[in-house]
């Protein structure tokens, strides 16, 4: 066992959980090595100092404040549930009356028929051609505009305010910064 290996067993030695074999080799090195002895003494002292840190107490308002929050949460959940049940109930009630049920079904048939005929009348692939043409002729324009719009959306989200779309040079720099910010935030921990 060398110094580095001995160091890996400091906690187990401190907590007296080393098995017989490891303890023998650990103590074999330890008896000979003054560096390890000194390091272990400091290790032991710092662990003890950490363990002796005073306990932090909650304030006397902890439980009343928690009760308050729980009551609010419960009330909110209940009111959402109530709203959902009443709306659902109202919808069901409508269809329980035979006259309304018949009109409902009739309206659905009308809507379906309307959609069917509308699709038949619509010009087919012609309507999409201008857009595809535009993208095809200037391939690099679309992604740039898109990314600017995404950046502006992010900006809006982050700052909670509306930003005008025309990009002045300064604003453009600001937006680039925002993009780099969002990319770093996904990769980082603490």
């Amino acid at each position: 066992m060398n110094c580095l290996q001995v160091e890996k067993h400091f906690s187990a030695y401190f907590e007296d959980t080393l098995d017989y074999q490891t303890l023998q080799t650990f103590e074999g090195h330890f008896a000979e090595c003054e560096t390890c002895q000194a390091e272990y003494t400091r290790f032991q002292e710092s662990v003890k100092a950490v363990q002796q840190l005073p306990q932090i107490e909650p304030s006397p308002y902890f439980i009343p404040a928690l009760q308050q929050r729980l009551t609010t949460e419960e009330r909110e959940t209940r009111s959402i549930k109530d709203v959902l049940t009443t709306q659902w109930q109202q919808l069901l009630d409508v269809f329980r009356r035979p006259k309304w049920a018949f009109s409902g079904v009739f309206a659905l048939i009308l809507a379906a028929a309307g959609t069917y005929f509308y699709q038949d009348l619509r010009p087919g692939p012609v309507a999409t051609t201008p857009l595809t043409k535009q993208v095809a002729t200037s391939p690099e324009v679309f992604p740039v505009q898109q990314s600017r719009r995404v950046a502006a959306d992010r900006n809006q989200l982050l700052r909670g305010s509306v930003i005008s779309t025309p990009t002045q040079p300064m604003q453009q720099r600001y937006m680039l910064k925002q993009v780099s910010y969002t990319t770093t935030s996904t990769s980082g921990g603490l």
Binding site: E7, K8, F10, S11, A12, E39, F43, S46, V47, V50
Partner: peptide, 13 residues
């Protein structure tokens, strides 16, 4: 868990 705790204690030291 054991190695992380030992490592943390060494860093604190």
């Amino acid at each position: 868990t054991k190695s992380r705790i030992n490592r943390a204690r060494l860093m604190l030291k």
